[in-house]
Computed example of a mutant assay.
Amino acid sequence: MEAGLPNIKRWIVVYPVYINSKKTLAEGRRIGVSQACENPTCIEIGDCCGYLKLPFVIEIDKAYPRDFMQRGRVRVLLKKEDGSLINPDINSRKQLMIKVGELVPKHPGRTKKQEASTSSTAAATKSNKGGKKKK
């Protein structure tokens, strides 16, 4: 390793499955359903880590070991070399997952998608009210 680069191998790993409310504990969820969020992505988790002022690296090519179809993971640095916390509010992996679970639903990309999908579903329900036409 070069002197300037941090050793990311020692950073903690967060897979999106860990905070996915759609998954069960047996499938890999690590926090309660009430604290988790629906189908988080690596980019959203990374953005949340950036918002929390934590250094992170997104590894898109890595897969979740229990389900290799789940692509991507995020490595996050919680503590500096001397052992002091980077963000004093987050002192454990579990606290990080709970905080990210809260922040992902408020993610800017997610709020725009929800607004677009609710307006398009409303338009679709209005157009389908005609029913079948008689021959």
Score class of each variant (00 low, 15 high):
V100N: 01
N128D: 10
I43N: 13
S127H: 08
S34R: 09
L96C: 02
V33K: 15
R30M: 15
L103G: 02
E81G: 05
Q95V: 06
K113W: 10
T111C: 08
H107W: 06
I31A: 04
C42T: 13
Q35E: 13
T118S: 13
M69H: 10
E38M: 12
N128Q: 12
L103Q: 00
N128L: 10
S119Q: 15
D61K: 11
P105I: 02
G83L: 07
I31M: 05
T111L: 13
V76E: 00
V104D: 01
L103S: 02
K62T: 08
G101W: 00
I58K: 13
L85V: 08
T125A: 14
V76I: 08
S119F: 08
M69L: 11
D47T: 06
D67Y: 07
H107R: 01
E38G: 11
P105V: 03
L78C: 03
K132T: 06
D67K: 09
K94P: 00
V100T: 03
K135H: 09
S92T: 15
A123G: 07
A123N: 02
A63I: 08
D67V: 01
N87M: 03
P105K: 03
T121A: 13
S92Y: 06
L77A: 09
S92P: 10
K62C: 07
R93S: 12
I86V: 12
P55M: 02
S34E: 14
M97D: 06
P65D: 05
M97H: 03
A36S: 15
Q114D: 10
G101T: 01
K53N: 14
E102H: 12
K53E: 10
S117H: 07
M69Y: 10
G32W: 07
I98V: 15
F56Y: 11
R110P: 01
N87P: 04
G50S: 12
S84I: 06
L85S: 13
P108K: 02
V104L: 04
P88N: 07
V57P: 04
I58E: 12
K94A: 04
F56D: 09
A63F: 03
K80W: 00
A123Y: 09
S84Y: 00
I45K: 02
K113S: 12
K133T: 09
V76G: 01
E59T: 06
D67S: 09
K106P: 00
R75F: 01
M97K: 10
K62M: 05
N87R: 02
F68V: 12
K133I: 10
L78W: 05
R75E: 03
